[in-house]
Amino acid sequence: MPLQFYLYLSAFLFSIGIGLALSRKNSILILAGIELILAAANLNFLAFWKHSSFLEDPSAPLFALFVIAIAASEAALGLALIIHLYRHTGSTSADSSNQLQG
């Protein structure tokens, strides 16, 4: 598949991720959108790596590996926060914590 295919695909995934993160009400789905953004960036890196002439250079897969690890840790923390918020406010909706107090 030519490079442009992967570029357009990762741009599409990136925008879908942002659309999800900005429009859904449920916090868990917002987090899913953020994970999708990071995965789209990974796809971009790897597509450029494969179509370059530097296939021996491990920088791109290494960077993608770090992105995967960071995405996982951020997802874990985000979900722990959502659980904590649920116990506090009783709902996972992003609109439910709109008070500074209580």
Binding site: I28, E35, A64, A71, A75, L79, I83
Partner: peptide, 28 residues
């Protein structure tokens, strides 16, 4: 990712995203 020739990264992605992130979302 596998079709892009980065097989280590593909399996790492499946292990982490499907095995950990998606599982965390289901648990939450």
């Amino acid at each position: 990712f596998l079709s892009l020739g980065a097989e280590f990264l593909a399996f790492a992605q499946i292990l982490v995203y499907v095995g950990a992130v998606a599982m965390l979302m289901l648990f939450t």
